[in-house]
């Protein structure tokens, strides 16, 4: 029986919008198991990034429970949220968002400093990830001398550095061409499988969906699970 890394129970999120409130997420329930790679697709403005932010301890939900690794984080204070992000969540953003003045090596090592990992463990973790991502010959390069794909791979490495239980990626391939994007998504999938993490990826590119285990559609803040793509490696039929 696989452990549930993430459980969302009746999550809703609304923002004040003038006199009214704007409901962006509407009663979303979801469970993601370890080793599972979930894709989220949906039209622009449907609430994908908001959902990812709620899961990623960047936003607290208006209603409902977010249980991450057995811990209910829905009522956490900002400091607790920060600590949760530092220790238990790995983010991959649309653009790599690397720190321009750090070498590849230090990009990864920096993460360990946020949750006070001991130096040696931090270093060996870094070496391990760099090997797996094929970045060993780029260790002392700065971001400006890396290709787009390499940068995104560094960002993946960074997301895995703190050994998080869940990886969240918001359109990680948007700034890459298909080939490179594909490699990046496959790298994420490899890491997720081999390390038994849970991962959620928002994407616009339906060609990436076959890499994922499960595809979720979100529309107007409501979640619709796409049954047809449940089977792995089955190309998604809903191409428009």
């Amino acid at each position: 029986m696989l452990k549930e890394t993430l459980t969302l129970q009746h999550i809703s999120k609304s923002f004040p919008d003038g006199d009214r409130t704007l409901t962006v997420l509407d009663d979303i329930s979801l469970a993601v198991k370890e080793g599972e790679f979930v894709a989220i697709i949906g039209p622009s403005g449907s609430g994908k990034s908001t959902l990812l932010s709620v899961i990623g301890a960047l936003l607290t939900p208006t209603n409902g429970k977010v249980v991450l690794d057995g811990e209910d984080i829905s009522d956490f204070k900002p400091a607790q949220l920060t600590a949760t992000r530092a220790s238990n969540i790995g983010f991959i953003f649309q653009s790599p968002n690397l720190i321009p003045y750090l070498t590849v090596k230090n990009q990864l090592l920096l993460v360990g400093k946020f949750n006070h990992t001991n130096k040696r463990a931090n270093l060996s973790k870094m070496n391990e990830l760099v090997q797996e991502l094929g970045l060993q010959h780029r260790l002392n390069n700065y971001p400006n001398s890396l290709s787009g794909g390499e940068k995104q791979r560094v960002a993946i490495g960074r997301a895995f550095m703190n050994n998080p239980n869940i990886i969240l990626a918001d359109e990680p391939t948007a700034s890459l061409d298909y080939e490179r994007g594909r490699t990046v998504v496959e790298k994420i999938a490899d890491e997720v499988k081999s390390r038994r993490k849970a991962a959620i990826m928002v994407t616009h590119d339906e060609r990436m969906l076959d890499v994922c285990d499960r595809v979720l559609h979100i529309e107007d803040g409501k979640l619709i699970e796409d049954k047809s793509s449940q089977i792995k490696n089955h190309p998604t039929p809903c191409q428009t």
């Binding site: 992000r85 530092a86 720190i99 946020f114």
Partner: peptide, 15 residues
């Protein structure tokens, strides 16, 4: 913007 990224990664304001 850079600080925003650091914060998303879990850097505290005091860091």
């Amino acid at each position: 913007n850079q600080f925003g990224i650091l914060k998303a990664m879990g850097a505290t304001t005091s860091y």
